[in-house]
């Protein structure tokens, strides 16, 4: 999983497999960080307050 694991080899298989894996991990975590961050900012700006009647 990491280059310091002793079975790690710098070959095409590892480039492709872990390249795709880390790419997906980064997208998912960046996406969530963005959502949480923006929601915090929105909340601090008073957005969404008084919204409780179930309507959007």
């Amino acid at each position: 999983m990491f280059p310091f694991c002793f079975e790690w080899v710098w070959d095409v298989g590892h480039y492709l497999f872990f390249g795709a894996m880390w790419y997906a991990v980064i997208i998912i975590s960046l996406g969530m960080t963005y959502c949480v961050g923006k929601s915090l900012v929105d909340t601090l700006n008073g957005k969404g307050a008084g919204h409780g009647d179930g309507h959007h």
């Binding site: 997906a24 997208i27 998912i28 996406g31 963005y34 959502c35 949480v36 923006k38 929601s39 915090l40 929105d42 909340t43 008073g46 957005k47 969404g48 307050a49 919204h51 409780g52 179930g54 959007h56």
Partner: peptide
């Protein structure tokens, strides 16, 4: 939904759901 942060979070997640769905 009454909690502003949760309301905003749900809204923002909806906003970029296509990215998550594509992934």
């Amino acid at each position: 939904d009454k909690v502003p942060f949760f309301h905003n979070l749900g809204h923002n997640m909806h906003g970029i759901m296509a990215v998550f769905a594509a992934t």
